[in-house]
Design a protein around this nucleic acid. Structure first.
Lengths: 182, 182
DNA sequence: GTCTATACTCAGATAGAC
DNA sequence: GTCTATCTGAGTATAGAC
């Protein structure tokens, strides 16, 4: 895999997460990589193909980071807070979740991209569920709680994009602290 | 206010909520209203001005609908479920929250639009807080819980856009049912 | 294998027609 | 007061140069 190709993917992901789907145009990407927009088509057959590939890379990278942050922390609370910290890091970098950006423009996704986004959310929800399976005294069925937790994390990151105070992820941190005893 | 102007605003809001910010181009709006793209500029000085106006209209409309749905329901639980039903209706119509769509593209907002979006979220959070002030036995400080509830509603609506199963808002319904006793 | 010239469509915006 | 012809630049994509 060529350097240029990887560089283009990195640039595209950054643009989408900092701005939105439309911000990752072939023209912009080419300019940042020092080639013409039309040259980007050599590396990716189409825009749709690039977008689908970005989601799969994002998923792999996200869960690799999550695993690393969880290394050595066994307790449910520590793991949920590690996940929250990953979202917090995104927020501090001014980046939204890639899959949230895709979801907001879901009409223009190919079936391939849509499936990849669905899989990311599904895998993350399952990750949360597995963590909750080791926790006790929960106020809700674990499947339900996993859905609510995932929703609140994605929502908080989105809401805080227009709000400099950035308090929503912190509220979720307090919730997790109360929710899981250990 | 002319009919054409109102029609254009209606079309723009629908496009943004069904698709995304970019889908409300002057060209598309003009075509749908039977005039040229350039004619839309007679009704709105600029795209930014239109976008800012849409948010303010959305806020007014949203809270009017919310008030109507809460008519006659005094209990905190009934009111929170009325809010959830409003989100559920959006989901069933294939529409996202207008302010979520704006948030996902926050980089391209004018200060005016951004402030309007912030105000929408802030007002909704305060509405939730006032409802919670009448509830008892809550597991978290009310300010925190209001932030988590708002985040989860926005996140659920977003996630379910790529997911035909649409289970996330339903999970929040279960949560509200357990959370508030009456 | 890597990149560009070029084409075509669509974006926002202005100046001016009726 | 209402609308359009037209400008300029950005978007994806193809055919072909090196």
């Amino acid at each position: 895999m060529s350097d240029t190709r990887n560089q283009l993917k990195q640039l595209a992901t950054d643009q989408i997460r900092r701005e939105n789907l439309a911000a990752a145009s072939f023209r912009e990407l080419g300019k940042a990589a020092g080639i013409k927009a039309s040259s980007v088509f050599y590396h990716f057959q189409s825009r749709e193909q690039l977008l689908a590939e970005l989601v799969r890379d994002y998923e792999a990278d996200f869960f690799a980071q999550l695993a690393e942050r969880c290394h050595g922390s066994d307790s449910p609370k520590q793991r949920l807070l590690a996940l929250l910290d990953l979202f917090k890091q995104s927020q501090q970098q001014g980046k939204q979740c890639l899959c949230a950006a895709y979801g907001a423009s879901s009409h223009e996704l190919s079936d391939d991209s849509r499936a990849a986004v669905q899989q990311f959310f599904s895998r993350l929800e399952n990750w949360i569920l597995e963590v909750l399976n080791k926790a006790s005294l929960l106020p809700l069925p674990r499947e339900t709680l996993a859905k609510v937790l995932l929703s609140s994390l994605e929502g908080a990151l989105l809401i805080d994009r227009t709000n400099i105070e950035n308090q929503h992820l912190d509220a979720i941190r307090q919730w997790i602290n109360k929710l899981v005893s250990v």
